[in-house]
C-alpha cells in the first residue's frame, strides 16, 4: 500500500498554518509536543503560537479564556495527555460552557510502540465521547486529515481529532470527501459481513480482508471517520447490505468504537449479528513493537482473521 510522504500531524498543522496566515484569531497551543510543521508555525506566526509548558490543564483553561474572547484555538499534545490529564478542564472550562476548541491528540492506540502504558491512548475514546457536545474524528489517511483540519477552522466546535503517530496509506482520492458529510463511509464493498474500524486499523482490516478472500469470505470495510455524533440514518444505510458486523479497534472494549456503534445500532433499531474486537482489559509493559502489542492484545491480523472467519461461519 502507498504511504503518504507526510505525517498526519504535519498534514494537519500545515492546513492550520495556511489558515492562520489569513486569520489572526487562530492560535495553536502545545504542551511541548513538536513536529516539523509546528516548528514552521512557531517560526512564522509569533504570538499565534503558544507554548503552554508541559501543563495540559493550564493549556485547556487558557484556551477557554481565549475562546471566550472569540479566538479559534488548537491545543496539541500526545493523545493520552491532552485527553485524560486535563479531562476535567475540558469538561468544565470548554464543554460545559459550549466553547469551540480543537483538541489534537497525536499517537492514538499503541502509536507510541514500546513506550508503555503512559503513552498509549487506549481509553481516550471512551472518556472523550462521554463529554456532551463533543465531536470525535479519527482521520485515516491524508485526504481525511486535510478535510478534518479544514473543518476545524471553517466550523469551529469542540472537537477531538485522533491522529496516528505514523504514516498512513491512502484511502480516499482527492475530492472524495463523502466521509465528511456522512461521518461513516464504506471504503470496500463486501458481502454479508463488514468490518467497521477507523484510522490506523483500517489498513489492518484490509489485510484481514485479503486473507479471508482466499476462504471465500468477502468482508466490506467501513471507515468510522466520525465516531461522535453517529448519524443513525447513515449507519442504517451503510449497514444495509450486511447481516454481520465486526467492530475492530486499538482501544479497550469498554466504551470504545465498538461500544459506540453498538449503542447507535440499538438506539436506531438496527439489528445485526455483532462481534466486537478490541483490547481486553490489560496494560502491557512489553517491548517488541506495535504488531507484537497487537498479538498480545488479540488484535493482530492473524487473530482477527481467525475471529472474523469463525464469526462469519456461525
Amino acid at each position: 500500500m502507498e504511504k503518504n510522504s507526510k505525517l498526519p500531524r504535519d498534514i494537519f498543522l500545515d492546513q492550520i498554518h495556511a489558515a492562520a496566515r489569513n486569520n489572526k484569531n487562530i492560535y495553536v497551543m502545545t504542551a511541548d509536543l513538536g513536529s516539523d510543521a509546528l516548528d514552521r508555525f512557531r517560526a512564522e506566526m509569533g504570538r499565534q503560537f503558544i507554548h503552554a509548558g508541559i501543563s495540559e490543564q493550564n493549556m485547556i483553561d487558557v484556551a477557554a479564556g481565549m475562546a471566550l474572547n472569540g479566538k479559534i484555538v488548537y491545543v496539541y499534545a500526545m493523545a493520552p495527555f491532552v485527553t485524560l490529564r486535563c479531562f476535567e478542564q475540558i469538561k468544565v472550562a470548554i464543554a460545559s460552557m459550549g466553547l469551540p476548541l480543537t483538541i489534537i491528540g497525536v499517537g492514538v492506540g499503541y502509536s507510541y510502540e514500546d513506550a508503555g502504558p503512559t503513552h498509549y491512548a487506549t481509553e481516550d475514546i471512551s472518556c472523550m465521547r462521554s463529554l456532551a457536545g463533543i465531536e470525535i474524528l479519527t482521520p485515516g489517511d491524508e485526504q481525511s486529515v486535510i478535510q478534518a483540519a479544514r473543518l476545524t477552522f471553517a466550523k469551529p466546535a469542540l472537537r477531538y481529532i485522533r491522529l496516528d503517530r505514523t504514516y498512513l496509506p491512502t484511502l480516499y482520492n482527492e475530492g472524495d470527501n463523502r466521509f465528511m458529510q456522512d461521518g461513516i463511509a464504506e471504503i470496500d464493498r463486501g458481502e454479508t459481513l463488514c468490518i467497521m474500524t477507523a484510522g490506523y486499523m483500517l489498513q489492518k482490516a484490509r489485510a484481514v480482508k485479503v486473507r479471508l478472500e482466499s476462504d471465500g469470505i468477502k468482508p466490506g470495510i467501513i471507515d468510522v471517520f466520525r465516531l461522535k455524533p453517529i448519524n443513525g440514518q447513515v449507519l442504517r444505510s451503510v449497514l444495509a447490505p450486511y447481516s454481520k458486523v465486526v467492530t475492530l479497534e486499538e482501544h479497550f472494549l469498554s466504551g470504545g468504537l465498538g461500544g459506540a456503534l453498538v449503542e447507535a445500532m440499538v438506539d436506531n433499531g438496527i439489528r445485526k449479528d455483532i462481534k466486537r474486537i478490541g483490547i481486553e482489559d490489560h496494560y502491557y509493559c512489553e517491548n517488541g513493537g506495535r504488531n507484537y502489542l497487537h498479538q498480545l492484545a488479540g488484535i493482530d491480523v492473524d487473530t482477527v482473521t481467525d475471529a472474523v472467519r469463525s464469526f462469519a461461519k456461525l
Partner: peptide, 22 residues
Amino acid sequence: SITGSLGHGLGIGCGYGYAAKT
C-alpha cells in the same frame, strides 16, 4: 465563566489576558 471546580479561573483569566495583549 463557569466556576465551582477549583483551579480553573486563573487559567481562564490568563486566556483573557493573553488575548487582550495580542
